[in-house]
Design a protein around this nucleic acid. Structure first.
Lengths: 142, 142
DNA sequence: TTCCTTATTGATAAAATTATCAATAAGGAA
DNA sequence: TTCCTTATTGATAATTTTATCAATAAGGAA
């Protein structure tokens, strides 16, 4: 909501344009948080937007750092507004998720930067493992 | 090559089976390293295997921790044998890649484990940023 | 405002990925 | 070895994602 004008200016500065479609998708992500392409399409379908446009727009916004892409662990990707940076841990057995404070990775990232010479902009990382409960239980088949 | 018998035993212990298709895909990844589903299919096509089987097998092997999935940054996923754990940095501008020693993340991971109670098994993480060259150049449009 | 350039979209087709289900074959038991 | 159970595959259809290209509309200039 309040960030649309700022993004509009940012896009124009690069020669891009703010369209009603991009606006609607950003709004959907603002309201919905973590969403898959299909979920986003559901929320903007009423505007008459095409699915192709949804995919194109998501790719465009992600390339420009406005959205973050996260691996959901099921082979599919989810999108979210960047800015509220955080990471996820997903339990391989029961699927439980929890957020991880990005500050935890800050030291490792700055060390990587000094060793590689790259400048890293933290994306959304997904870690996989076993949650406290599944760690105890005898590993039952999925 | 040398790890197939070990994996066969591991699978059987879980009630799964080692098939010629799984064998061929593991061999392709052993030879090829990082491969997309399409690249893998090319390498095993001569066996008469179906594309559906390739996707199914990759998902199966990844679920069982035999393969790691990595986000290639283009919205698609790549697969590799787990075991040779490492991470990647990809430059957002020119696409340059470099490997990162997983030891760099070890402290952060153990801290995450103690704070969350999860047991993490390191997957293949992909970090995005700017390589030393692109960091200097005025950001040119892709 | 009106005009103009061109980034963006919709429509459509193509390609990639997943789901369904009967036929096959892995591997344990006898 | 032969038989049996059932995990796995192939064939096929359905769904998701991407590519192509002409039509539209954002937004700068006059």
């Amino acid at each position: 909501m309040s960030c649309i004008p700022r993004l509009t200016i940012m896009l124009r500065a690069c020669g891009y344009r703010m369209t009603s479609q991009r606006h609607a998708i950003l709004q959907a992500l603002h309201d919905g948080g973590h969403l898959s392409p299909a979920q986003i399409y559901q929320r903007v379908e009423s505007t008459g937007m095409t699915e192709a446009t949804v995919y194109r727009t998501l790719e465009f916004l992600a390339e420009n750092g406005i959205l973050l892409v996260a691996d959901r662990g099921n082979g599919h990707l989810a999108y979210e507004l960047s800015g509220e940076s955080h990471h996820h841990i997903i339990c391989r057995t029961c699927g439980a998720q929890m957020e991880v404070d990005p500050a935890l990775l800050a030291p490792a990232i700055s060390q990587m930067e000094s060793e590689t010479g790259y400048h890293l902009n933290a994306g959304h990382l997904t870690f996989f493992g076993l949650c406290p409960l599944c760690k105890q239980k005898p590993q039952e088949r999925a």
